[in-house]
């Protein structure tokens, strides 16, 4: 047996000015509830991790974020990753001190790749997640910064490899094309990146049904899969999703209240 490491199901909270929001293709945000209350629900439901992304539009909103991290962390005994607005080692420190276990950096890593090395050096590689937002342009998956608004000169696979060499412990890979569409994860994009690096890859963008998760774990070779809207609006419950995936033969962490028979 090579490993009994399970595939992870990660619930994502996009937080703006203290409330959870969710959009489609990175636009058209709607209110989905209180971050701490949702975090508590997902943890109780068996989410393997939580990721909170700060999408605040204002400076006041960003200032409130440390308090939001603290409120979420108080609810959890599973890992919490915080991303969005982490631009410096000081921002990372503030997130860790408030209760984050990892930070995800995106635009700041594109602008200053050494920030990856600085965070990994101070907090360990496992705490340095590099978030990559990618969008297809013909045959190239182009990396975008600034919440999907600004194309960079980088290609997803090459950037993931570089991030790994700079000390990233994990890649959070989001398909801008699929984000919020519920049409399924981009398995081609995910498999390309996952096969190119030797660190775990979290697939994000497009979760609609349980079969999408099975697909991205198998065809997409994802180590973890993230979803937001399907959990927020209670279309899919995490225990039911994990039971179904376990029945498909995928290794899942089943919690005692929702145990599998396998």
């Amino acid at each position: 047996m090579s490993s009994q490491l399970t595939r992870r199901i990660i619930a994502c909270l996009d937080v703006r000015d203290g409330v959870v929001v969710k959009g489609v293709n990175f636009q058209g945000l709607v209110n989905a509830g209180d971050p701490a209350a949702l975090a508590a629900r997902y943890a109780a439901d068996g989410a393997d991790e939580l990721i909170m992304l700060d999408v605040s539009a204002t400076i006041e909103g960003r200032r409130a974020m440390v308090d939001t991290i603290r409120r979420i962390a108080e609810q959890l005994s599973v890992p919490l990753t915080v991303g969005g607005g982490i631009r410096s080692l000081d921002d990372a420190r503030a997130a860790f001190e408030a209760g984050a276990d990892k930070v995800a950096i995106n635009s700041a890593a594109l602008a200053t790749p050494e920030l990856i090395t600085a965070i990994a050096g101070r907090y360990g590689s496992q705490a340095a997640v590099v978030a990559i937002d990618a969008k297809w342009d013909d045959e190239h998956a182009i990396v975008f910064g600034r919440s999907g608004t600004t194309a960079s000169a980088r290609e997803a696979v090459e950037w993931a490899r570089e991030a790994e060499s700079l000390g990233a412990g994990e890649i959070l890979l989001t398909s801008i094309d699929r984000d919020g569409t519920r049409q399924g994860f981009d398995c081609v994009l995910t498999a390309g990146v996952s096969g190119a690096v030797n660190i775990p890859v979290i697939a994000s963008g497009g979760a609609g049904g349980a079969d999408h998760f099975a697909d991205v774990f198998r065809r997409g070779r994802a180590d973890a899969a993230l979803a937001a809207s399907i959990f927020h609006f209670a279309d899919t419950s995490i225990p039911a999703l994990k039971r179904w995936l376990a029945a498909q033969g995928l290794p899942m962490r089943m919690t005692t209240t929702e145990d599998s028979s396998c």
């Binding site: 490491l5 399970t6 590689s125 994990e170 030797n198 660190i199």
Partner: peptide
Amino acid sequence: LNKAGSYFELTPGFVSVKIPHLGWNR
């Protein structure tokens, strides 16, 4: 856990895996 010539690589049944070993295991 995943380096050529390391103690673990020499143990019977060793398989190359992704590191960090990150996530839930038994």
